[in-house]
Structures are given as C-alpha cells and as structure tokens.
Design a binder for these strands. Structure first.
Length: 553
RNA sequence: UGCUUCGUGGUGUAACUGGCAACACGUCUGACUCUGGAUCAGAAGAGUCCAGGUUCGAGCCCUGGCGAAGCAACCA
C-alpha cells in the first residue's frame, strides 16, 4: 500500500466523510494522455476501487483558448483502454461555471475578492518575489458594490480581455506566492467547446479545482507534487465555500519521469506540431495512444506503474523497467512466429525441388494451450543475413561455411557453399545440404548443433514492412539540460523502416493490434495502417540480445 | 539569502511506526535449451546525505548542518 492509500485508510478509520472514498481524475482536454497520466489514472481509479469507492472523470476545461473536443474523445478512449470506467460520472469543470460565478460573487460581497484594473505586468510586478513580499493593488479596497458591478460587466463583455481580473483578497505579504491575492477570474472572449459564448469570464484552475471537488463530494483529491504549494489556497477557498464538516483533501504524489523521453504535454505537442514525430500516437511517443500503437498492453502499463510506486520525491524511472513489463506480459500471452527481417536466400541442394512439407511448430513453449501451427517448408528458404558469416568470429554459433545448424522445427542443415552478388559483393545465396534423419522428432533429431535459426519458405513467404523503433532521444534526461533544448537530443535513428521482410504465411490475416513474438528477434504488433496485401508491423520491444552485447565488446 | 516538500545499492521502491536493510529492474556469472534472445539458478552491489544526541538497540525519534526539487502564468 502506498502512502496515499495509507492516508485514505486512516481517514476511513477516523470516520471522516462517513467513511466514503471518492476520487476524481481531472485531465485538461488540451492534449493526449501520456503514461504519466496513466500513473495518475491508476491511482485515482485504483484507490477508489480498493476502498469500495468511486472515481469521477472530470475535464478541467476552464481555458477555452487551449481546449478542444478532439482531446476529450481521445482521453475517454485511453482511460477505457487502460481498463478503467467512470460509469455515468463524466463531468466538466464547465458544468459548474454558474456555481463558481455565484461563489465568486459571494466572496465579493464578503469583501474577500476585488476587481483589479491593472495590467498583468503591473500585477506581476507587485507580486514581489519568493524572498520579498508583494505590494497591495491600488484597487484592493474597492467597495463590494463597485466590485459586484464591475464583475458583472466583465462577464457581460463590456471590457476587453486583459483589462480587468477578479482577485481573491488574501495576503500580499504571504510567504506563499499563491496566497498573494491570486487572480481567480479573467476575461476570455472565445467560444468554449461546451458552453459556447455564454461566458466572457472564466475561472482560473485554483478557483475551479477545489470547488469542483467540493461540488462532487470528492474526498481525496490526488495530484502531483507541484501543487503542494497550492494546497493552502485550495483549503482557503474550500473553507469559505463549505457549510458543513465535509471537505475534500488534496494529497500530492510524484509525477512519472522516464529516461530517454520527455513527459510534458507542451513538449510532446511541440514534437507533433513540428512534425518531428507522426502525430500524438506515433509509436515512439510516451502517449497512451502511442504505446498502444507500439504494441503495449494495458496490463503491461499497469504492471509497470504498480512496480514504480508513489512517493513524495521526484524520481527518474529507467525505461528498461517499462520494457521489462511488456516483455513479461507479451511473453506469456503472445504466439511465436517466424519472420525474417533481413532476408538472404538459402537453398538446400539435396532437397527435391518439387517437395513440400508442413512443419508443426509450437506457438508458445510456455503455454501448451496455445497449440501449434503448420509452417510450409521447401527447398528454397530465407534466413536472416546476420545468421550467416563467411568468417565466423569466435562465439558465433550460427551458420558459416562447413557449419551445421538447426532450422527451428525442421532439419539440421550444413553449409556447403555460398554465392556472392558480383556487383555489391554481398552474400546472395547460401547453399546447404540437409540430413533427413534430423527432422524434429526424427531418429537423429537429438544431435547437438551450435545454433538454431528461424526461417521461412521462399515460395510461401509473404512480404511485409517492419518498423523498428528505438528510443526517441539519445540522452537520458533530454528535458533536464539547462543549456540545451530537448530537441537537440532527438535520436536520428529512432525509426528504421524495413521493407521486403519475409514472414511465414500464417501472418497474412493478421489484424491491426495483433501481437506476436518474432522468434529470436522481439515482440511485434500489426500497425493501424496495415492492410491485407500491405502488412506493416511495429516493433514493440526487442528480445534481450546477449549476442548483441558480446559482439559489441 | 523566503516558503513548501524531500534525501535508502546504478535505477525505482520496501522495511509491520525503534529489532540482522528487503524486493524489482539493470549488471555480471552459470545451467539448460530446437529462441545465443525462451526458461531457471546464482553473484556482485547500499550500511540508509553529514555531524551530534536519546536508547540495550536508530533508516525510522530529537538537534544542527549539507544538498535537491517546487513556488514570482490573466496555464493546468
């Protein structure tokens, strides 16, 4: 149990809010959800679930300059995909604009809010600094009657944007900057995605959030650490709004940071706008939609989040942990198939040209229930270029002149010769002989050979495009470098597109989002752009490659 | 020279509120293998930011340092 759930448990035991637990997930619809939001979603929905409570979905749509319906739809889809449900409790901060306006009016009447006619620059200048107190606005002591009139006229559209704001009257000398008469309402003359042109005046986050929590009966309002300093203001406002004992409690936790990526919506949006990636759901993006398209499962994301925990200190999590989580999940649930990414032809000289067999191949050695399939085998095959070396180095256990290897699920073959392309000098064809007694399950099948290769039959293979993804950035913390823009660290090799890959024919019918392990290579997922006859696979994550490490040394 | 929060292996988290610092990832080694990459086993790696104090006993409590992050948007 993390520290937040411990707090919740203590509140339940203390009898607060009649033992009720009600949380909320409050995204601003100004971008797509990323895995950091998934961390919040798992906490908000997860802790409610754990204590038999409820979790609302509430769009924090207080700024019509930034928010759009497109984002609302994607956010809902992503939350459902992750496996959470808000039932009929889909709310919007804009649902409460009327009540918030009334509350603001009430504060004015009580002498706790005033209209300030100054520019934002002047207000900022008077705000002071964290080490120096602020100065009071010359408009601070306007009468409630005048304030009421001005506030109403602000909302009637009489004044220009930026000409006036409503401020809470708290304490310009407070050591907490957020208590120095924060702006709570500003004029925005822009159509809102839900309320249209009804309002000319919109509440700020600080004025909306806690009050919305209160209106919805939220008991625990969980948010990230940077809102810690907002809590006194949150409490100040709720205390002036509430009439009974009930009050929502804000608790903060650390946001998710991942190595080799960026996690702010602003930066992600920048990548999208500058077309440095192919949209919010580019498989290299840490967005929920990107991860989905990349081949991640909701379970793997949830397991990852479970493993990193919730604390009060900022951490940078190793992507290796995320990758481990997908491998672990996919390993158990996904069939293995043969796919040759960089094909080279292999001819078995003593295998009759007209002969054809179907080899039975186990789908998942870890799970008998996943059964087996038949894979066509013939005289001409494709294997990986990397699986043959003219001059095999030490510890290279694959094919080379005179060497024997097993073709997985088929025969042991021996390389007798190879041909070279006269123009390029590349190996163009490998000639082998096979031993009929070594067929899997056959009399000499137990013979030891150094390696096992995957293969596809040349005549039966289907072509495919395969997209290999690598980390988007080649710096562990691209956004944390003072003197460099994060975009300087973009990895130019984050996407490699392979065409003419050869796949076993069972893959011809694979549908978008279908997932497989390409034996000896990695986990792959059919891309959304894939069509019958033009199949496209995304590499989710490679298998751990010990030869790769050895060969680099 | 303000306020708030926080310092536990390389990384992320634990440690039943005082009882031999545990787990995962990563790293390394080995076994096995018809995935070199599946699978399994093992090892190395921190004495808990520092200094005092309380205590039989401190990662946990107290005092004082040091360090880090957040906070000065009419963003959320």
């Amino acid at each position: 149990m993390n520290f937040i759930e411990q707090f919740i448990l203590e509140d339940i035991r203390a009898g607060k809010n009649d033992g009720r637990v009600h949380t909320r997930f409050p995204p601003e619809p100004n971008g797509y959800l990323h895995i950091g939001h998934a961390k919040a979603i798992c906490l908000d929905f997860g802790s409610a679930e754990r204590f038999g409570g409820k979790c609302n979905l509430r769009f924090d749509d207080t700024n019509p300059l930034k928010e759009e319906t497109e984002y609302v739809d994607s956010i809902k889809e992503d939350i459902h995909w992750l496996g959470f449900d808000w039932e009929d409790r889909e709310f919007y901060a804009s649902d409460y604009f009327g009540r918030l306006f009334d509350f603001a009016t009430d504060l004015i009447k009580r002498g706790l809010a005033y209209v300030d006619d100054q520019s934002s620059e002047d207000i900022a200048a008077q705000k002071g600094t964290p080490t120096r107190p602020g100065k009071e606005s010359p408009f601070r002591n306007r009468s409630p009657i005048e304030n009421l009139d001005l506030f109403k006229r602000m909302n009637d559209g009489e004044f220009e944007e930026g000409s006036r704001v409503l401020r809470a009257k708290i304490d310009m000398a407070s050591p907490n900057m957020h208590m120095r008469d924060p702006v709570i309402y500003r004029i925005i003359k822009r159509s809102h995605h839900r309320t249209g042109n009804k309002w000319k005046v919109y509440p700020m986050y600080d004025f909306a959030h806690g009050q919305c929590d209160y209106f919805e009966g939220i008991t625990h309002s969980l948010c990230t650490l940077e809102f810690e300093v907002h809590r006194p203001l949150y409490d100040w406002l709720v205390d002036r709004l509430r009439t009974g004992d009930y009050r929502p409690r804000q608790i903060e936790f650390n946001r998710l940071n991942l190595t080799y990526t960026v996690m702010s919506k602003r930066k992600l949006q920048e990548l999208v706008i500058l077309k440095l990636v192919k949209g919010w759901d580019d498989p290299r993006m840490p967005t929920v939609s990107g991860l989905r398209r990349r081949g991640y499962t909701p379970e793997s994301i949830r397991n990852f989040i479970k493993s990193i925990g919730y604390t009060k200190f900022e951490a940078i999590n190793d992507v290796a942990l995320l990758e481990h989580a997908v491998r672990e999940d996919l390993n158990a649930r996904v069939p293995r198939v043969f796919a040759v990414l960089n094909p080279v032809k292999l001819v078995i000289s003593n295998y009759p040209a007209e002969k054809y067999e179907e080899m039975e191949i186990i789908n998942n050695p870890g799970d008998e229930n996943m059964g087996s399939r038949l894979v066509p085998f013939s005289r001409e095959l494709y294997i990986e270029k990397d699986d043959f070396k003219e001059d095999p180095p030490a510890k290279f256990f694959r094919l080379g002149p005179g060497r024997e290897v097993r073709l997985k699920g088929a025969y042991i073959i021996k390389c007798t010769d190879f041909r070279r392309d006269e123009l390029t000098g590349e190996i163009s064809e490998i000639i082998c002989t096979y031993d009929p007694d070594t067929k899997s399950g056959g009399p000499a099948a137990g013979r030891k050979v150094k390696g096992t290769l995957h293969w596809v039959s040349a005549a039966h293979a289907i072509d495919a495009e395969v997209r290999l993804y690598d980390r988007l950035f080649n710096h562990e913390d691209p956004a944390g470098q003072k003197y460099h823009d994060f975009k300087e660290f973009l990895n130019p090799e984050s996407l490699e597109i392979l065409t003419g890959c050869k796949l076993e024919p069972s893959l011809a019918e694979a549908q978008p989002l279908d997932k497989f392990q390409f034996q000896r290579i990695g986990y792959f997922c059919v891309d959304e752009d894939s069509m019958p006859g033009n199949i496209i696979f995304n590499r989710t994550v490679p298998l751990k490659d010990t030869w790769g490490k050895v060969s680099k040394k």
